[in-house]
């Protein structure tokens, strides 16, 4: 629920409110991670490392529902809708373009909410391993979650063998989004 700019506010103020949006969204990903069966059996260190490398990607999946690829608009939870052009003033044009493309591809798969949630769990445990200590434990958790996702999707669409592979193909897209855009700058006012 992000109160991004009514026209009257400066782009700096827009930037601040946009930056503020991320804080609650990140906290929700942390809570989501703790609810993933098996996540809290990982070491605390590895939980933190996975969250640090995977949260941006999970957010990208979560934000997809805000994007309307046909209309090229973004509707925040408070109901405010913004065209891509108006949001370009935030200087996040390239990220927004990438988000529209990604949400179009993911949206076309027509996942149910529970399938999307399980996919987000897979996204998180598939994140970069560079800081992970017990790689085996993370790989085992990832394997379990992928198996659960596959059986959920194939049980609902027994005659569609393409959906699951298409879904897994979104993982590299998310990695690219992360590598290209997680260094975007946010600004916070300190009074």
């Amino acid at each position: 629920s992000c109160p991004v700019a009514p026209a009257s506010r400066s782009s700096q103020e827009v930037w601040e409110s946009f930056s503020q949006c991320f804080t609650p969204a990140v906290k929700e990903v942390v809570e989501f991670a703790k609810s993933i069966p098996g996540f809290q059996t990982l070491s605390q260190h590895d939980q933190v490392m996975l969250l640090k490398s995977g949260t941006f990607q999970v957010l990208m999946v979560r934000f997809c529902s805000l994007f309307d690829p046909k209309e090229r608009t973004v509707t925040f939870l408070n109901g405010q809708t913004y065209s891509l052009a108006s949001l370009r003033a935030l200087g996040m044009g390239s990220l927004l373009d990438a988000m529209f493309d990604f949400s179009e591809k993911l949206g076309s798969l027509g996942l149910e909410p529970d399938e999307m949630a399980l996919f987000m769990a897979v996204v998180l445990v598939s994140a970069d391993r560079s800081g992970i200590v017990e790689v085996g434990a993370v790989e085992q958790l990832q394997e379990n979650l992928i198996r659960a996702l596959r059986s959920l999707i194939t049980s609902r669409r027994p005659d569609d063998s393409t959906l699951f592979p298409k879904l897994l193909l979104r993982l590299p897209d998310l990695r690219t989004l992360n590598n290209q855009h997680s260094d975007k700058l946010l600004a916070f006012r300190i009074d």
Binding site: S19, F22, K27, T55, S182, A187, F188, I190
Partner: peptide
């Protein structure tokens, strides 16, 4: 004058996660 703290999205995310786990220790 208003001062600003500027950080990358990745650093902001890391900061929140570190805070959360520190608080819940």
């Amino acid at each position: 004058p208003k001062t600003h703290r500027v950080m990358t999205l990745a650093d902001h995310i890391s900061h929140i996660i570190t805070q959360d786990f520190a608080r819940n220790q």
